[in-house]
Amino acid sequence: MRTYEGEFTIEQPREKVWDFITDANKVGPCVPDLIELNVENANRFSSRVKVGVGPIRGKFDLAVELSEVEPGSVMAMTVKGGGMGSGVDMKAEATLSDVEGGTLLKWRADTSISGPIASLGGRLIDNEARKIIEKVFANLKTALDASA
């Protein structure tokens, strides 16, 4: 299990941010390198993504579920899926708080990678997993900023 975390500020009221990050229709497109997106309902979506780290190229199928932990401030996201004979399981949490000029979003993701990719990628996987997860949240910020 690896834990990654980060935070950023969005120049928008907390309520608006909350509505955004708990809507599968909005969050779904923030997954990087999407090939296919299937929003099942407001809380669930499945996606197929392209993974391309140098020569390591393949497709991953991910099922994502969004849930409210503390309405208006804490939401959880579980990601389950895999590809190329490997599995990915992630439990992420985003916490919102009011700050001057907008909303602070703090996130933390506990990630388990199973299978050959975890076994083979020892030297490299940490950096790669962190980058992909950071990209999800960076895309989220970009989308939120754009929606302002």
């Binding site: 020569p55 390591i56 190229r57 393949g58 190329m84 004979g85 050959p116 990719i117 083979l120 990628g121």
Partner: peptide
């Protein structure tokens, strides 16, 4: 020498 082992392990599949 890097690519072919990765392909044989099927983590690369160009």
């Amino acid at each position: 020498q890097s690519l072919l082992p990765m392909m044989k392990l099927r983590v690369a599949a160009p």
